[in-house]
Design a protein around this nucleic acid. Structure first.
Length: 278
DNA sequence: CGATCTACCTGATGGC
DNA sequence: TGCCATCAGGTAGATC
């Protein structure tokens, strides 16, 4: 499922593939993907516009246009952005097709239809749209010192996994990477944020940054359902490096003595090693 | 305030 | 084989 590393992988490809291109036409075939304006309004505001940059904040993709609008894309769980040419067969669940005057298309495919596209002005993004304006710091885009991270961590008492996946605290971490970060730092998901020693805070922050960068290096994680693929339909490779996620009953790669345990936390699967994480 | 649950949705999988 | 239940996960909103 797309979290920060997957979205960043797509962002880098968008930077190469669509920045500088002019939108010739837009076709909206699945109405659930356009929720914040009418499809007709979105199409009207997109056609003729040129994409000037490809940015990311947390799990949001931001494509500023030369019209002053920003095309915002959130893939949620199963959304995909795919590069295509008009003659390519149309995949099931293709909801939006953007065609460029220079040739080529960008298609939005989303089986579970949780993902969305919408247009917003920079002002709306920074002050009006709740989820975007309250988004926390993006740890890859805007690195902070571990001391600042510690202040943030102690600012509210909550369980570590809830903290890591809270988008208003840190933007971009979801279920997979929170488990991997916690394993790497040797901390349990249910530790309280106010219980960490200085050394543990440092370790957690170092793991957080390292795991995200490693995952980006390998193009993100594609699980067995193959929901995440990049712009060219290619899966990521970081799942081969997962230490705990989706490894229930398999031996821990660090201690080699205990099997990875699967638990439920806040309604989500949580994987960890009972020996290596304290 | 925090913690937990549910809705949203489709496709894959497992049990009987 | 076929049918039904369950699970997956990001986020908002409801509830305790």
């Amino acid at each position: 499922m797309p979290e920060l590393p997957e979205v960043e992988t797509i962002r880098r490809e968008l930077e190469r593939e669509v920045v500088g291109k002019k939108i010739k036409s837009v076709e909206v075939t699945g109405k659930r993907s356009i929720r914040r304006q009418t499809p007709a309004e979105l199409v009207a505001r997109l056609e003729g516009a040129k994409i000037t940059a490809a940015q990311r904040k947390g799990k949001y993709l931001l494509l500023p246009l030369d019209t002053g609008d920003v095309l915002v894309v959130h893939l949620r769980m199963s959304g995909q952005l795919l590069r295509a040419v008009p003659k390519d067969p149309v995949a099931k669940h293709t909801h939006v097709t953007i065609s460029f005057t220079q040739g080529g298309q960008l298609r939005f495919v989303d089986p579970r239809t949780f993902g969305e596209l919408f247009l917003a002005t920079p002002d709306e993004i920074t002050s009006e749209i709740e989820e975007l304006s309250t988004l926390g710091v993006d740890p890859v885009e805007t690195p902070m010192s571990w001391v600042d991270f510690g202040h943030l961590l102690r600012s509210r008492k909550m369980k570590l996994k809830a903290f890591l996946t809270d988008q208003t605290m840190i933007a971009g971490i979801g279920n997979i990477y929170s488990d991997e970060i916690l394993f790497d730092s040797g901390l349990r998901f249910d530790r309280d944020t106010d219980s960490l020693t200085t050394q543990e805070i440092r370790r957690l922050y170092r793991s957080l940054v390292e795991i995200l960068h490693e995952a980006i290096k390998y193009g993100g994680s594609t699980l067995s359902d193959e929901q995440y693929v990049d712009l060219n339909g290619k899966p990521g490779e970081y799942q081969q490096h997962h230490q705990v996620y989706d490894r229930e009953k398999q031996p821990c790669r660090r201690c080699r003595r205990h099997d990875i345990v699967k638990a439920k936390f806040a309604g989500r699967s949580t994987f960890y090693c009972e020996v290596c994480q304290v």
